[in-house]
């Protein structure tokens, strides 16, 4: 099977440097494992129903818990985490977290040092697109992964455009393997 690296919103073309395709969930696991300081950024669409009863926010929390990766929620969704008994490491706007990740001097939410991997999910596609672009151009030491089910070309790695079913399966494997690696 060939998979085209084609932006979901077709006009959102990146340029010469495009995200590598995540063809196997193990890529995400390996990246997360390799990173010294990973962070997960989760936008408001994570609380909107995606596939029947599975919400992205639940996957996000499971990833965060499985690998001990701190999770920042954007917009107003912190409450959705609290309702699930999960305290996110931070709650700030998407632009604020993007801007901080762009700052090589920023010591992180816990003051423990600069992040070297940022995984994104749940932002409006076009917003995630431009924020990933800002990071690609101005944060040379940060790798980014787009975990949404749409190819987002400004990330370092991104899923291609995949079905909800494939996406869920990928997440299950990622979570399983992250737990194992912990």
């Amino acid at each position: 099977m060939t998979v085209k690296a084609e932006p979901w919103q077709k006009a959102e073309i990146a340029g010469p440097k495009k995200a590598l395709l995540i063809m196997k969930p193990e890529v995400v696991v390996a990246m997360a494992k390799k990173a010294n300081r990973p962070i997960l950024v989760v936008g408001h669409q994570a609380v909107e129903d995606y596939s029947n009863d599975v919400k992205m926010i639940d996957y996000a929390i499971r990833i965060s818990n499985a690998a001990g990766i701190p999770m920042v929620v954007t917009a107003h969704i912190a409450n959705e985490c609290l309702k699930r008994g999960f305290s996110p490491a931070g709650s700030m706007s998407a632009m604020e977290i993007g801007n901080r990740l762009n700052d090589p001097q920023w010591r992180g939410l816990d003051g423990g040092g600069t992040y070297d991997l940022a995984m994104f999910m749940g932002l409006p596609y076009y917003m995630q697109f431009v924020i990933l672009s800002g990071l690609k151009h101005f944060s040379p030491n940060l790798k980014t992964i787009s975990l949404d089910r749409f190819y987002n070309p400004h990330a370092t790695w991104s899923f291609p455009n995949i079905s909800v079913k494939d996406w869920n399966e990928n997440f299950e494997i990622i979570i399983d393997k992250l737990k194992g690696e912990k």
Binding site: I13, A14, V130, S133, G134
Partner: peptide, 11 residues
């Protein structure tokens, strides 16, 4: 209020 740039594309 420092600029945070969000380029559409690379070129």
């Amino acid at each position: 209020f420092k600029p945070f740039y969000l380029p559409y594309c690379d070129v």
